[in-house]
Amino acid sequence: MTPHLTARNAFIAALVLALFLVPVYAVWIGNNFVLSLFTRIVILAIAATSLNLIMGYGGMVSFGHAAYLGTGGYAVGILAFEGVTSGFVQWPLALVVSGAIAFVIGILSLRTRGVYFIMITLAFAQMIYYVAVSLNRYGADDGLTIYRRSQFGGLINLSNKTVFYYLCLVILMGSIYLVWRIVNSRFGMVIQGSRSNDRRMRAIGFPTFRYRLACFVIAGMICGLAGVLLANHTDFISPAMMHWTRSGDLIVMVVLGGMGSLFGPTIGAVALLVLEEALPYVISVAGRVVTGHDVATAKEYWQLILGPMLLLVVLFARGGIDGLLASLRRG
């Protein structure tokens, strides 16, 4: 993998640079909303990157990945509520619990394939969702406000929005690097071989189940870390963090950006969430230009535009946006 100057690499470099410059831009226009939006984008890109590890490289289409976002978030929220605000306790514990839950879900779901796997992972995520709903002490349906972000003994101040953004971005880059190392290692070869032809893998001597399970746990832990960041970002946890539609969003990000591509999930997260913000605005402006007066309700139909866009990507760009960029060189 030697870097060459292709349209795709130039685009990815520009995207990473742009992500690093977001706080500068936010200061320049004096608007904190952009920084907050991109903090959320970067956090969900971490979650999508972890989903890509099992879905894009391992062929395990988990429809319950948001459960780990919730697990990581609740670990932080519950500990903070009980008076434990140290990040040195919160974060490792969140990772361990996320990993343990992924281990249990994996052991039971990885024996199945295809639609059954999708349904079992969804069912487990729903179970965890309803456990959160039933936690009356911790706000049940309404959720729980976190009054203090994770404390790192003065090492790093997460309440500083710029510092927090850069921390999230560094963790995103770290996750992508980690996935890159993993998928090209011996372990990654087993995971990809198992996606391609599991029966053959067993015939040449691989006990594939344990490798797939380990991969599932790693992805769950990375996503749990994203949940930790999300809770610190919103200063709030609620069962909505792990609603099944959130799992769907993560799948959309991966597919839209490019399954089995390192930067695909990040591209997908940026594309989806920026469109989500921009489309209503574009519609209302266009509505005013066309009709001559405000059509405030029109912008509620932004999903009518997003839907067909997703459809076009899935139908005509199998490798997502990243695949499209890669094909430019050949074209």
Binding site: I182, N184, S185, R186, F187, G188, V190, Y211, A214
Partner: peptide, 10 residues
């Protein structure tokens, strides 16, 4: 075993 996560296999 193939629990080797770091070095490029290729």
């Amino acid at each position: 075993h193939s629990f080797r996560f770091w070095r490029p296999a290729r």
